[in-house]
Design a protein around this nucleic acid. Structure first.
Length: 723
DNA sequence: ATTTTCGAGATTTTT
DNA sequence: TCTCGAAAAT
């Protein structure tokens, strides 16, 4: 096994195969590389069977990339089942083990929308307000309650023969916090979910843990199987993720944890950073050399993250050259901002860059819209990864619902598509069907069959629908999934619906779906493909992850950009209130502010050669507040950034008073002022002694020249006066 | 009884 | 841009 081309730290990491190893890997330090090499090392040098290695990644895309890299290292077409996300691991685990709690291996996986639909029905059933916001609020509590009671929740609710009794410890809490309705809604929701033997994303984790905890022989079997476990992006794993891989690693004890505390961006979802910090590894390696970015970009990133109080210090370094300075563009309005990005891209493409060298990153997905429009005007080919994700698009969900109805006689799928395209089955008809189903204890589809013998329902459209599904069911045995799907699309009228509706994009998406099914089929052995497992797998896919990186500019949220890199990066919409995000800060205060800063850090460190920061004046859609440049731009310090666009320097003063009022509105304590003045000698705990060159923001920030000649813009409260 | 239409309102981040 | 609900149109 050739380890040439790895630096010392990386080699150490690859060869530290035994025991609990922690790698703190800064952005761009080659952690994916290390993971892939290590995997190959285990297989090639140690002779470990890939079936005994579990490699957990954060996204499906990352898993895909990891598999490719490993394959090219090992030089085989080997694809291991166990290079995957935690959720897909759980699905694989449960396919084998869920029978122990009375579910079939074809249990259904519910995505967020499915849960919303179920919860909505539950609200309806109980005669409660079923507005989306209400349902969402309920689901949030629902998740929390589940997390609080864990195994108890599975025992009391999820097991098919469970007593359906609210776990004692949490009942009081739930009632107190959300009223009597909560218990009732909880029960109705669960009953629906259980009826279809289905699990939502959280349940996958809970049930896996439940089985591991309650069936010692299963636990031991899997613990023995997993000789080596590696986990990527550990800083974003939550308590339950930790529970799973720690349990699995308990016998062999070979747990390889890779992460970067500075890139924690999922604390809002329960990322358990302290667990990573305090995990007591036997081997601990810090990789701080960056191979991705120019010095200017890296220094900007370092300067930003330096403003966080709660962090383990680790300054990234690089041997690459300074590169071009960063550019900050200040636009008059959001359209100008987007157009500037377009024109830059066009210009750089003329100078030899390709569309695929660019990425535009934003804080929230709605910000992609202006960009998209500008790209369309300028004929720049692009892919949007944000916004409505591929498998959440209406037409895709409809198409899949047809498949689901064929495969599982699924009531939820039925509800979704029975009237798409319109078969004149509205609310009243749906109620009748539902009542008939209840009387006969059958599925909605069978209920419709029963009703169809009555003349009120014996409409042509209805008969055709029943026939379609019946035929498809007969065909499904001897037909590939993609062919079945094509058959359904052609004969259900879905294709027709979008063709006549000028909804070309939807039609294209459907074609892409067919392509993706074909890819899925090609990637697998023939006996490994079934409609049932396809549908189960697809539930975990959120993006069009299969889409090859063709010649497109990529537009995505920063969260989605995690782990990726691009030669040229634009970070757009860098306004106070948007980034840092006001709502987020209001909810979680200082923690959130630091997380927003880490998000900025992640965004900046995606860039290899050049980085552009853009923002614009105007009013925010969300809060209606006036827009000012984000504080993060200024935290970079002036010597690394060139500002373009017409900008009144006084805007910074107004921006900082806006920042302060936003902070106090969000309940953040105002920063302490040290009363520093120009020319003061100061000390910084890391950078040492320096001199204040400029004070701004009412004394909140200072620009300091340090004795080694470096200039930094720093928060005043990080500096102490020296004599 | 169903479908269409129109205006209002809302958008953090994800497996 | 998209979704949702109410009121009008079929």
């Amino acid at each position: 096994m050739e380890l040439r081309g790895l630096n010392e730290k990386q080699k150490q990491a690859v060869q530290a195969t035994e025991g609990r190893v922690r790698i703190i890997a800064g952005a761009g330090s080659g952690k994916t590389r290390v993971l892939a090499y290590r995997y190959a090392y285990l297989v090639d040098e140690l002779g470990i069977d890939p079936g005994n290695i579990l490699c957990l990644t954060f996204t499906n895309k990352a898993a895909q990339e990891m598999r490719n890299r490993i394959n090219s290292l090992i030089g085989g077409e080997y694809t291991s089942d166990f290079i995957c996300t935690i959720h897909s691991f759980c699905v694989k685990f449960l396919r084998e083990e869920i029978f122990r709690i009375g579910y079939p291996k074809t249990f259904r996986v519910l995505d967020e929308q499915d849960m919303k639909d179920i919860a909505k029905e539950a609200h309806e059933e109980n005669g409660l307000d079923r507005k989306e916001s209400t349902v969402e609020r309920f689901l949030k509590c629902f998740c929390k309650t589940k997390a609080m009671s864990g195994d108890e929740y599975v025992r009391c609710y999820l097991l098919p023969d469970s007593p359906l009794k609210f776990p004692k410890e949490t009942e009081a809490d739930a009632t107190k916090a959300y009223g009597d309705n909560h218990v009732r809604l909880f029960e109705s929701t669960i009953l629906r979910q259980r009826k279809f033997l289905s699990l939502d994303f959280d349940d996958l984790i809970f049930v896996t843990i439940y089985i591991l905890n309650n069936f010692p022989e299963v636990r031991e079997k899997w613990q023995k199987k997993m000789n080596y476990i590696m986990v990527d992006e550990v800083q974003d794993c939550n308590r339950l993720d930790w529970e799973i891989f720690q349990t699995l690693a308990a016998i062999h004890g070979n747990l390889f944890l890779v992460g970067d505390p500075d890139q924690t961006i999922y604390e809002w979802r329960g990322a358990d950073l302290p667990q990573f910090i305090n995990c007591n590894p036997q081997t601990d390696i810090i990789m701080a050399q960056n191979y991705r970015s120019t010095s200017n970009i890296l220094n900007a990133a370092n300067a930003i993250i330096e403003h966080n109080d709660e962090r383990i210090r680790k300054e990234l370094f690089t041997q690459s050259s300074d590169g071009e300075k960063l550019i900050h563009f200040h636009a008059r309005n959001d359209r100008q901002e987007a157009d500037w990005i377009s024109s830059r891209i066009v210009k750089m493409c003329k100078d030899g860059a390709g569309f695929s060298d660019f990425a535009v990153l934003v804080r929230s997905s709605y910000l992609t819209r202006n960009i998209e429009q500008s790209f369309m005007r300028e004929k720049i080919s692009y892919v949007i990864w944000g916004g409505v994700r591929f498998f959440e698009r209406k037409e895709i969900k409809d198409a899949l619902s047809y498949l689901r109805l064929v495969a599982f006689d699924d009531d939820m799928a039925f509800r979704r598509i029975v009237n798409v395209p319109s078969r004149k089955i509205g609310r009243k008809a749906m109620e009748d069907i539902s009542a008939t189903a209840n009387e006969n204890g059958c599925s909605l589809f069978e209920a419709l069959r029963i009703l169809s013998s009555q003349k009120a329902y014996a409409k042509e459209a209805v008969m055709k629908f029943i026939e379609l599904i019946d035929t498809a069911r007969t065909l499904s045995g001897g037909m590939s999934i993609s062919n079945l799907l094509e058959y359904l699309l052609a004969n259900s009228g879905l294709n027709e619906l979008y063709r006549t509706d000028e909804q070309e994009e939807r039609l294209e998406n459907l074609n892409e779906l067919i392509q993706s099914v074909k890819t899925y089929e090609n990637d697998r052995r023939e006996d490994d493909i079934s409609l049932e497992t396809y549908l189960q797998d697809i539930a975990l896919y959120t993006n069009a992850d299969y889409r090859k990186d063709k010649n497109f500019v990529k537009v995505m949220t920063i969260h989605q950009a995690k782990g990726l890199e691009f030669p040229y990066v634009f970070i757009a919409g860098l306004n106070e209130g948007v980034m840092p995000n006001k709502r987020s800060v209001r909810e979680r205060k200082k923690k959130a502010m630091e997380e927003e800063r880490r998000l900025m850090y992640v965004a900046v460190t995606r860039a290899e050669k050049r980085l552009f920061l853009t923002e614009s004046e105007g009013y925010s859609m969300q809060g209606g507040f006036e827009k000012f440049p984000s504080r993060f731009i200024r935290e970079i310090g002036t010597e690394m950034v060139i500002t373009e666009g017409i900008m009144d320097e006084s805007i910074w003063d107004r921006a900082s008073s806006f920042s302060r009022s936003m902070d106090s509105e969000c309940g953040l304590a105002p920063t302490r002022k040290e009363g520093l003045a120009e020319g003061d000698a100061v000390m910084h705990k890391i950078f040492g002694s320096g001199t204040v060159r400029r004070v701004y923001d009412d004394g909140d920030y200072c620009e300091v020249i340090f004795s080694n000649g470096m200039t930094r813009s720093l928060k005043a409260d990080k500096l102490t006066k020296a004599d």
